[in-house]
Design a binder for these strands. Structure first.
Lengths: 185, 185
DNA sequence: ACCTGAACACCGTTCAAGT
DNA sequence: ACCTGAACACCGTTCAAGT
């Protein structure tokens, strides 16, 4: 046991980092200690602490994207939007620190931007579908999707930060108001 | 010159900290150096780094509250909501890192919670007024305000993080959709 | 009351050396 | 190819001592 080569150090570092995220500051040396590897070892897999955090954020977008995609799969427009909103808020409340990391910075790499765009693909498609079905006001789908996404993101972010308690009733009310506001007239 | 007592070290530390916020990690020693005081000096005014950051966040809520209050002062419901949304987004885009700090953590002290509540007083009052005027659906004002606030906060947070470009047209469209969605029927 | 400066235990990053 | 361990320049926090 205790092989010289860990074999999966990259994944182990990301796992360990996510578990410790949100409990104060994160230290690379502490991660290495917990995994049982020397403090210099992470350098083989990540250029530095920032690179590790960025990889974690990217992984977060990939997971969020999968979750949203699955949630928005079935039902009519309102049902799909409600499922998407619930999934988003649930992600935020159970991975609050990760969501912070994903949307923090302003210094976003291309990889991170691409991952974020992919995560937002399902919401965007939902809006475009609803426009095609005449359930949502016409216009640039990206623009309309931004309005809808911002509303849901706001709820998720506030819930994840503990500012708000976003129970299903509040989520559904938000979705209801959003559907009404987006209706063509 | 170079008096033994700085005289206003607390305020100087907060100022310096805010200026450097968002440019990588913030160090107490670096703040002290920039101000020209020993690295132990901040300890007289803040229990530690976290305490300084929390004071900064609290100051942020106070300023945001003042801004929102001023913005929501005049006009009809839609105009007041639009002004409030623009002011919020402007705050977010010009103080992105500060907004992150204000809503980061989940470990919010009482002082911070109180400051946040005070900042949200103007939006809450706006919703309550609009309900009284029959322009917004009836029901618990806090609940309705949460829905409205989340939508605006989402736009501000995404704009502040650089995920979105929230020009006035997008803000106004968000407000328009929100007003429609909140209308009694 | 307010600040200094040494001390301590950490940290991220680098890099020669090991396997 | 992957990891170790010493080295370096930092950091936050503590605390006796100065004014």
């Amino acid at each position: 046991m205790s092989p010289y080569h860990h074999g999966n150090l990259r994944a182990a570092l990301l796992d360990e980092a996510e578990q410790r995220l949100g409990n104060g500051e994160l230290s690379l040396r502490e991660l290495a200690r917990a995994i049982g590897v020397s403090h210099g070892a992470p350098r083989r897999h990540f250029a530095g602490k920032q690179a590790l955090l960025e990889a974690l954020a990217e992984e977060g977008f990939i997971r969020l994207g999968r979750t949203l995609e699955a949630a928005a799969a079935d039902g009519d427009f309102t049902a799909r939007l409600a499922a998407l909103a619930r999934a988003y808020v649930h992600f935020a409340t159970s991975h609050g620190a990760l969501l912070d990391l994903m949307f923090a910075g302003k210094h976003r790499s291309e990889g991170l931007e691409a991952a974020a765009d992919r995560a937002f693909a399902a919401p965007l498609a939902l809006i475009a579908d609803a426009q095609a079905a005449g359930e949502v006001v016409a216009g640039d789908p990206e623009r309309v999707a931004k309005v809808a996404f911002a509303a849901v993101h706001g709820l998720a972010a506030l819930a994840g930060a503990g500012v708000l308690e976003a129970d299903d009733a509040l989520i559904d009310e938000t979705v209801e108001r959003l559907v009404l506001g987006l209706k063509p007239r």
